[in-house]
Design a protein around this nucleic acid. Structure first.
Lengths: 110, 110
DNA sequence: TTGATACTTAATCACATGCTTAACTATCAA
DNA sequence: TTGATAGTTAAGCATGTGATTAAGTATCAA
């Protein structure tokens, strides 16, 4: 995954309003005003957040008539998940190496 | 996981310099200047990034003599991972419900 | 004790973010 | 065609971010 895509994806998820939008969209598609209704801010503010989500690839939208319907795009979600999982795995391998090293030195002591 | 912790964790991961630091630390602990050496910025700038990582809980550090040694803290990493995984699961369940609904309407048609 | 090393803090600055309100466009329904 | 609805765009503003350089502190080694 490219660096700037990770920037955009993690940045999109770093805001509670945007996570609320993702959470709502995880339950199914919604229009812009449906998404904005429960949020304590103006519609243009919500549209700003949707723009960030859409640029990150986490959300896609489509306009039919005067209604824009937004839906979640789970691929980016799983790519972010993978980045984190891989670093955690790296860390665990480095712990294993440390463990092996400590075992080795222990054997030397005996 | 609390909202502001997710804010801090995702925000910490939303910067390529900070991800580079996480990536380096996933291979094992390092001092501040070891971490700063390969990066194209001043030491105070790197310390700013380390502060963000440390406030997020992704990194911990400890000073011995004049050397501060930093290490990764994988718990926050896996908590961020879980948040993403759960939303993806939500989305998949909502797809299942849609599938079930479509199957149902199909049965009605026959 | 003197000098180098490793980090820390402070002042500064350019630029990005996250809102707001107001004005505008496009669609739908009567 | 008129009015309401759904969304969009623009201007403005307070605050936050990410960097810099310069100066300061604590530790270590000779």
């Amino acid at each position: 995954m490219l660096n700037y895509q990770l920037d955009q994806t993690f940045n999109a998820l770093a805001d509670p309003t945007r996570r609320a939008l993702v959470e709502r969209l995880a339950q199914g598609p919604a229009s812009v005003s449906e998404l904005a209704a429960p949020l304590p801010m103006s519609l243009p503010a919500v549209m700003g957040h949707l723009k960030v989500l859409e640029e990150s690839g986490l959300v896609k939208s489509e306009k039919t008539g005067r209604v824009r319907t937004c839906r979640i795009e789970p691929q980016m979600l799983s790519q972010a998940e993978h980045w984190v999982a891989e670093r955690r795995a790296m860390w665990e391998r480095s712990l294993d190496r440390l463990g092996a090293f400590l075992d080795m030195t222990k054997e030397d002591e005996t």
